[in-house]
Design a protein around this nucleic acid. Structure first.
Lengths: 339, 339
DNA sequence: CTGAAAGCGCTTACAG
DNA sequence: CTGAAAGCGCTTACAG
């Protein structure tokens, strides 16, 4: 009888026990209004007695739709991604009777991206897709729509898909305004390479807004005071040393992310520059690290963004709502000790 | 034809196209040696032409075993957990033809723990379970073994299950030896409540080893210099203030985790105590934060622990290896600026 | 309101 | 070496 590994009781066992058909058991399990109360009770009793638990795999196959949600994230350990994911996790586990399972895909190299998208989309093990911070191609959207697979973007903007984003250009402006108000005029920037293998654009958007705001104030973002590198701490530190090694170093630096800002701080320390006396530093994101080191930063609601994106996805899955809405989240400057 | 949402081609479509039976297609897909080469080629061609992709759900149902691995973690955002998870993720995606999917369960409250275990174990959507940092009950192990569900523990010790752990008692000793070598004699401790709803014991184990080593050196861990609270930063800060508010405050503090050590550092700052001049601080874990703030700490290989645990689980799943081995990882003290 | 039957897309003894 | 058939555990028109 028990073939593979000790499978538990099935719907048929319950049916037998309750003296009804499997169809009826299924109806009770799915809260169909068709079943009369006494029958329901018998079925429920049988379920309890047998310790029956529904096989989600069979259900998925029969229904043609999964109860899991696929989440694709880059660099699983980035603080901002984790913070977003936390919002997603919190939301997902709260939904529906038993919530959605969360299938996690980490993309550590550009090539893995395509694999993840295809795996998740085509194998129909997933009721929807949440794509975090990874630019998506039109061909991929075509594929998703062909499969009628709901998808939501988080921290990525594409006109054809619902998305939760932030106005990065505006964020750059806020950073500029803050530094300007502090009286700085020789201001530097440390961010990602304008072009990168993933197609990330946040850093560039922030820099553009930053530069534009400086110009509007009669100042400018001197190309000589800009440095670009990988989005990590070490690299930001190196770039900062080079910036501070100049004959007339900047008196303030805007880093495209908090992680990079931490690198900037290290660079300042290494070069013997006091923060904020010699050079002020402002980051972007407001990850937990920012508070810990006392970093002034542009806060974006990371956790909330995950919650909102999850909500959008659930709406798309359960109610078929998939207008490509754009939810733009609020940015605020959080002043701490580095400016 | 296409009923639910545009399902892709099935094995039958491929069979028709290749002029063979579905059974043969299945065999080719599963690399059965039974199929002769010319047939294989035809099937492969059909697969390509149709863009066929196997339905993992159907396969799981038919085989009675899943291709996903369930990972249960507490407090998804704790740095140490994330770091471990990263190792798991890296390992899982590398295995087999297409690797294992990762089903993530976050336990934010003790009650969720049971739900997660049951959901994952019973619904047989998962080929194995990786339990991180969460103590497991005998009844749960019984259930797992009844279902023949492979399970591996990470940062938890139970004699009946394979596990990857660290010797926390020894870690405490290392911390004591380090502080003693620095000439400290009035030494405090900040850690978790000895009893907590999750049953975590790391903090207590570390404290015990710490106290024992002090005594062995003719010193002792004065109960008046111990403080217990939740495993978070804010609480550790509050506890530290109380410790430093004493008439004869400790000259060194061992925190049960880096996160708590950061709180200790904040507490020192708030009380105007210089680190390490007035009070030395040592943590435990060596999460990324530790390096960033220059914290001296007891390093445990977090990422590697995830990799090892994943390896054990895969071995259990694929080769049926499930002797309850215990892999004990190396601890080292990393001296930075706080001692 | 309930049941018998077909179907979801695979796999795998069992024949041949 | 290959195919027909039964089965994995559900769901849901279709009858009654």
């Amino acid at each position: 009888m028990v073939s593979h590994r000790g499978r538990g009781p099935t719907i048929r066992d319950v049916a037998r026990r309750a003296g009804v058909s499997a169809a009826t058991v299924s109806r009770v399990l799915n809260d169909s209004p068709l079943v009369v109360e006494p029958t329901r009770a018998r079925v429920r009793a049988a379920v309890d007695e047998l310790g029956y638990r529904m096989n989600a795999t069979a259900r998925t196959l029969s229904l043609g739709r999964a109860t899991a949600v696929g989440v694709v994230v880059p660099f699983f350990t980035t603080h901002s991604v984790i913070e977003r994911l936390r919002g997603v996790v919190a939301r997902l586990s709260g939904y529906g009777q038993r919530g959605y399972d969360l299938l996690l895909f980490d993309v550590e190299a550009p090539a893995q991206r395509a694999d993840a998208m295809r795996d998740l989309a085509d194998r129909n093990r997933v009721a929807g897709l949440l794509i975090v911070s990874l630019p998506i191609f039109d061909a991929e959207i075509d594929a998703l729509q062909r499969d009628e697979l709901p998808a939501v973007l988080l921290d990525v903007r594409h006109p054809r898909l619902p998305r939760v984003v932030v106005d990065n250009v505006r964020g750059g402006e806020l950073a500029a305004e803050h530094l300007l108000a502090k009286g700085h005029s020789r201001i530097g920037f440390v961010g990602d390479h304008p072009t990168n293998a993933y197609g990330f654009t946040s850093s560039e958007d922030r820099r553009r807004g930053f530069g534009a705001a400086l110009e509007r104030a009669g100042n400018r973002l001197d190309p000589a005071l800009q440095r670009f590198g990988l989005a990590d701490r070490e690299e930001a530190e190196v770039l900062t040393r080079s910036l501070l090694g100049r004959s007339s170093p900047p008196t303030a630096i805007f880093a495209a992310s908090d992680l990079q800002a931490i690198g900037v701080l290290k660079g300042c320390e290494a070069m013997g520059a006091r923060v904020p006396e010699d050079v002020a530093v402002i980051g972007f994101d407001d990850v937990d690290l920012a508070e810990i080191v006392g970093l002034t930063t542009i806060r974006q609601p990371l956790r909330e963004s995950g919650e909102q994106a999850a909500d959008l996805l659930i709406a798309a899955i359960e109610d078929g709502v998939d207008d490509p809405v754009e939810e733009v989240q609020q940015l605020t400057v959080v002043e701490r000790r580095t400016t």
